[in-house]
Design a binder for these strands. Structure first.
Length: 356
DNA sequence: TATACGTGGGG
DNA sequence: TCCCCAAGTAT
């Protein structure tokens, strides 16, 4: 009797669905473009809607079809992704686009989608349900939270995943599976939020077990987080007399793989030093660049040098001043640049003539 | 199952 | 400043 009904949620969704650029509003009997859905789902992996919107629009404008994206240069796609994080997503995005273009379009089943690069259980189910109307059970962080509360699952994550998946699958309707998937996620994002959920206005307030027991704030039960280690390293910001910047494309196996960055040391323990990428008078700055990654904190010593015209770098290559855009750098590397900019050695203009 | 993998915003 | 977290995937 008090079982949560997908119809109750769909009714709520019909009235409260968020308007998102990649979404077809409920009630419109048209299917969204699979390319746009896939692109949004990959961008949304561990990433907020607010952060994704601009990137999604720019990608759609620049590469309107999966074929156009498949034909893009790697460096251009990586640069467009800069700042969004989890750069393996961008590398897999391109690999996936090329695989899809080669086979003549997106596969339409969850199982086939799952086999594509960068598409895991969540994304396969989401694209199958939203773009192709397959009855696929979508399980993301929102669904985990909602199921944990509605069924008051006290088992800590990740052990609770099998039960959560089973519950989610049972609730997924045959009709409107795509709307249902988006409805649970909207519920989790706007009502059943991690902190202070708005139970009073929740369409599932009646059947919700955690709410009935007053433990909604304690679900889901999560494992204790561990301390983030600190690492150190160094980065070289070199600038040639003509204004060109010395940058390198990072190896895809490394952190920030495929992205543009300043040459420097690895950041692993015991690899805090590296020789300069080019001969020159390198000067260590007093300020250091700090950046917090998901699993470690990083502090980088910054060295700068004004390099003579004709310098032959041993690492990286010079990027002409007109081709250099900080926007194309990952955030950690932008931080290094901010610190480096405090030095007149790499200033845009010629050395200032002091007036008296 | 556990760990690597980014970033920006909110409390 | 610090801590938490957001539509996960690959290994």
């Amino acid at each position: 009797m008090n079982r949560p009904l997908s119809d109750d949620l769909l009714d709520w969704y019909d009235r409260h669905a968020r308007a998102l650029p990649w979404r077809v509003p409920p009630g419109w009997d048209i299917r969204p473009d699979p390319y746009g859905v896939w692109l949004s789902e990959v961008m949304l992996q561990q990433t907020t809607v607010a952060a994704v919107k601009g990137y999604w629009e720019r990608f759609r404008t620049r590469w309107p079809t999966v074929e156009a994206l498949a034909a893009a240069e790697d460096a251009e796609v990586m640069a467009e992704w800069a700042g969004l994080g989890y750069y393996a997503r961008a590398r897999n995005l391109l690999a996936c686009a090329r695989a899809v273009a080669a086979r003549g379009g997106f596969p339409q089943t969850e199982a086939e989608l799952r086999a594509l690069p960068g598409i895991g259980p969540y994304t396969a189910a989401a694209v199958a349900a939203i773009a192709f109307r397959e009855r696929a059970a979508v399980v993301d962080g929102n669904v985990e939270r909602v199921m944990s509360r509605v069924f008051d699952i006290a088992t800590p994550l990740p052990a609770a995943r099998s039960e959560i998946r089973a519950r989610a699958d049972l609730l997924t309707p045959t009709e409107r599976a795509g709307d249902y998937a988006q409805a649970v996620m909207d519920l989790g994002a706007t009502i059943c939020t991690p902190r202070s959920p708005a139970c009073v206005v929740c369409p599932w307030r009646e059947p919700c077990l955690a709410r009935a027991r007053g433990v909604q704030a304690e679900r889901p039960v999560k494992p204790a987080k561990k301390v983030v280690p600190q690492r150190r390293g160094m980065a070289y910001v070199g600038r040639r007399e003509d204004g060109a910047w010395l940058l390198e494309t990072r190896k895809s196996e490394r952190m920030l793989g495929g992205m543009l960055g300043w040459p420097g040391s690895a950041w692993d323990r015991g690899e805090e030093e590296a020789p300069p990428p080019a001969p020159g008078d390198w000067v260590a700055l007093n300020a250091e660049a700090r950046h917090g990654f998901s699993h470690f904190g990083l502090t980088l010593r910054v060295l700068v040098a004004r390099l003579p015209q004709g310098t032959e770098p041993q690492r990286g290559q010079f990027v002409p001043v007109e081709a250099f855009h900080p926007d194309r750098l990952p955030t950690a590397m932008r931080r290094v640049l901010e610190v480096a900019r405090t030095s007149p050695l790499i200033a845009d203009s010629e050395p200032i003539v002091h007036e008296t």
